[in-house]
Each structure stands twice: as C-alpha cells, then as structure tokens.
C-alpha cells in the first residue's frame, strides 16, 4: 500500500549533534569569554542553527550541479551508507578525500560562525560584558594612554573571541565526529 523512505534518522541525529555542539560550545564560550550562562547558550544555539541551515542550503544548491557520478556516490552514501568504490580507486585516496572533505566542512562552519558572531555582537552589543572585561584589563595595565588602552582592549577581545570560538568548534566537532563514528560502527 505504502512504501516510502523518510529522512527520520537524519532529523534525529541532527538534533542530537546540535544538542552536543550547543552544549559543548556554550560551555567553552562561557569559560573563555566571561559571559553569563544564558547568553552563551543563546549564542551557541543561534550560531549552530545558522551554520546548519547554511550547510543545508549549500547542499541543496550544489547537489544538482555536481557531475552525475558524484551525485550517485552521494545518493549511495545518504541512502545506503557506503560509497560505491570504483574498483580502480585505492582505499587510501578515498579516506584522504573524506578527511579533506571533513576539514573543509569544519572550516566552512568556522567561517560562518565567525561572521555570524560578528553580526550578532554588532546587532546587540554585549556592552555590559565588554565593559566588565575591559575593567579587568585596564586594572592590569593602567599606566598607558587611554586611546592605546582602548585599542588594546579591542584587540584583546577580538583575539579572545576568535580563539575561543575556534577552540569551542574544535571540541564540539571532534566530539560529533567520534559519536558519528560510533553510530556507524553500531
């Protein structure tokens, strides 16, 4: 009567991965950027949602443009969980490709999150936290001129922001990778 294929597992795993990513990143952002827990969770949630959605959009636009052979490989991977290996291609190259692909996705997500964080912070500046942060630093080097200090603070914040976001992403993506490997094995 009815035979169909629904992407229910994709939805389930995406929810799981989003929860993992949001919780890990929120924890690290909270630690590194001295934000309240609520704000850091909100940041992590919106950044991850945004990068996920952009990832989907890229997939939707790119898939029809790929060469037919690649399309078939992708269909095989999504529907049947394997890449149909052309007999000529050694396994090493495939793993190398996969690794490269993972790295690319990681960088893409990172870039998207950087830009999004920048926009978010501009949109509703976390002025309170920045001031709070600034006070700490200004206490430590109070001898310098005001303008120089201001620049330094900005610079410090900027570096801190990108560094913490990078670290947060490394942790969360690694965890997700491990979990997805476990899922594949099971």
């Amino acid at each position: 009567m009815l035979v169909t294929v629904l992407p229910l597992r994709a939805v389930m795993f995406q929810l799981l991965f989003l929860l993992i990513a949001i919780s890990v990143e929120a924890f690290i952002i909270q630690q590194k950027m001295i934000l309240t827990r609520r704000v850091s969770i909100q940041y992590a949630a919106s950044l991850n949602l945004l990068s996920t959605i952009l990832g989907w959009l890229i997939f939707f636009f790119l898939h029809p443009l790929l060469p037919l052979d690649w399309q078939k490989q992708l269909i095989n991977f999504i529907l049947f969980g394997h890449f149909a290996t052309k007999s000529g291609l050694p396994l090493v190259i495939i793993f190398f490709d996969l690794g490269l692909f993972t790295l690319l996705i990681f960088l893409l997500i990172l870039v998207i999150e950087f830009i999004a964080l920048e926009l978010l912070m501009n949109l509703k500046s976390i002025s309170k936290d920045a001031q709070f942060n600034g006070q700490i630093i200004s206490q430590s080097d109070s001898g310098e001129k005001k303008s120089v200090r201001r620049e330094n603070i900005d610079h410090y914040l900027e570096r801190n922001k990108s560094k913490s976001l990078f670290i947060a992403n490394v942790y969360s993506q690694t965890l997700i990778l491990i979990v997805s490997f476990l899922i594949q094995k099971i």
């Binding site: 009815l2 035979v3 294929v5 629904l6 992407p7 999504i78 529907l79 969980g81």
Partner: peptide, 21 residues
C-alpha cells in the same frame, strides 16, 4: 531503489505498510 535495503543508512528509514516494493 525502493526495493533495496536501507538499514545501513544513517539518514533515512524505510517505511513499508502492507506491501513491498
């Protein structure tokens, strides 16, 4: 493809109600 086995997939599940493809 509908007649195939989707159990290895991490994305989709196959739903069969009262019939087979």
């Amino acid at each position: 493809l509908l007649a195939d086995d989707f159990s290895k997939s991490t994305f989709v599940v196959k739903i069969e109600v009262l019939s087979k493809a």
